[in-house]
Nucleic acid binder design. Structure first.
Lengths: 277, 277
DNA sequence: TGCAAAATGGAACATATCTTCTATATTCGG
DNA sequence: CCGAATATAGAAGATATGTTCCATTTTGCA
């Protein structure tokens, strides 16, 4: 243990944690990880609370503080309490403050997008039809392979779906247009297609969804209005209306829907496998 | 004095203060004024500190808390502490339960994710430092070219940033790893890098950010904790803590931040061009 | 495998902090 | 101006919290 004095700022403290973290015994490392991940809790918690959250005994947490160069928890906490002043917690107040910082200022913009995201989420919870969701999940979990297509702004949703399905061990193919290779013939009967598109609708996405339907695949659409061009293609239409701000849409609701879809499908698949074996 | 119960939120508390403030005796009014003006200190101070700052005796401050309907200072403080610490429930285990019990209908699942997204957005508004945001936008708008890197779950954010920057006519390069081509040498002095990574941090992303910094580019990090491996790389650290579920995170807050970033940079660039021409 | 060093858990101890109580001061109405 | 009601200050008491110590367990090394 070195005899250096206590860190004088939170940055210094985090540096020190990063630095010693690897050479720390198990319990002390738990403390280090917890503090590094939740530095904001230090200011308003007791050692008992901190240590419980980190999964260690209070005494272990004390030793951790001392390894960092503090005399004890109280001294370390003082550091966090002193720098606490600016982070004033209340959401409504804070949002108001951000907005007031000047129309067009970055913070004001952020406030608008946060608000838009929140509205979208609320709206999603209210309007999505559970039966359609159930049917979509059934179709996806029965598929041999899930094809995902979404271009331009919908591509981030598509790539997230691909990532999440992979994590869930669901066979997946992400149809990007790298090299303009035409991948539509990869879709077979018994597969499923998730097509994501918002106005102005991407023709490639619609075309691929149609090709999938013709090939005998079930198609799940994530789109923004009942008038979407995907409407004629499939009855499994999940509509998400995001509150946009300017030309951009936040995608908050769309992504939440995507995660829910993946987790539900992953769970259904796992249940089915267990049932069969 | 009325016998109503204690306020359940900070807004309620501030309302109540406003309401009773006029009919309060001198010392108690001092307390009311001080709390109304410095609500952020309540969570991290002792009665002794609060009362001294308000210019009264501790006992006077106690009486003030009781007039408000609390049993004492501690109870009032708990209100402030709870609202500060992002005490969102443990979604990982909550979802695990939902899934294992099989009782979790897809819509219930969706509701969970919507709620998680909402909390993440609130938290973003509460914790993001406007000055860091301003500095990040300045760095990005001064860059000749914006490089974007984010792997795995962060890739959807990266791809969305690329899409939006393109829309805004900001020169952009998305560093995917298609073909495992090493693109780090494309980064030059005068460029900027946006690196997005969340625990478990992707080594490629960190490496590319470091390479960028060495090449003389400004680096903006979007990450999840102050202890992120990107912190040593750059002071422009935008931290977004999403409520996450093991391998998944809703990304609602991250994407809102991304849009705000892009629009602000686009606007700044346009203003600059107009100013020059 | 056995030993020594280090780490850990839990309880005992010390201290800081909150809370209450009462004598004194102040205010307000007649 | 006087008396009753209320407010206040300060200190004493109760409680929560931080801190230390030591027996036990675990780890690392020969």
């Amino acid at each position: 243990m070195d005899a250096r004095s206590a860190p004088a700022s939170i940055e210094e403290l985090l540096d020190r944690i990063l630095e010693v973290s690897d050479g720390l015994p198990k319990r002390l490392k738990q403390c280090a990880d917890y503090v590094a991940a939740n530095p904001d809790r230090v200011a308003v918690s007791t050692v008992a609370e901190m240590s419980e959250a980190a999964g260690v005994q209070p005494s272990a947490f004390m030793r951790f503080c001392q390894v960092l160069g503090f005399s004890g928890f109280s001294q370390m906490q003082r550091l966090f309490r002193d720098s606490y002043a600016q982070n004033w917690p209340d959401y409504a107040t804070r949002l108001e403050k951000l907005r007031e910082s000047g129309a067009g200022s970055p913070s004001a913009l952020l406030a608008e997008f946060v608000e838009a995201g929140r509205l979208s989420l609320e709206n999603l919870a209210k309007t999505l039809d559970p039966r359609t969701l159930d049917a979509a999940i059934k179709a996806l979990s029965e598929a041999n392979m899930v094809h995902i297509v979404g271009m331009r702004r919908a591509f981030s949703v598509a790539s997230y779906l691909a990532y999440a399905f992979e994590k869930m061990n669901v066979p997946t193919m992400l149809h990007d247009s790298v090299g303009k290779l035409d991948s539509r013939h990869a879709i077979r009967a018994g597969d499923a297609v998730i097509a994501i598109t918002f106005a102005p609708y991407s023709p490639e996405t619609v075309a691929l969804a149609e090709a999938g339907a013709r090939a005998g695949a079930r198609v799940v659409a994530i789109t923004d209005a009942l008038a979407s061009p995907l409407r004629p293609v499939t009855p499994l239409l999940l509509t998400v209306s995001e509150a946009d701000f300017g030309d951009f849409r936040s995608l908050s609701a769309t992504l939440s829907l995507a995660v829910a879809l993946v987790v539900a499908v992953g769970t259904a698949n796992r249940a089915r496998k267990n049932g069969i074996s």
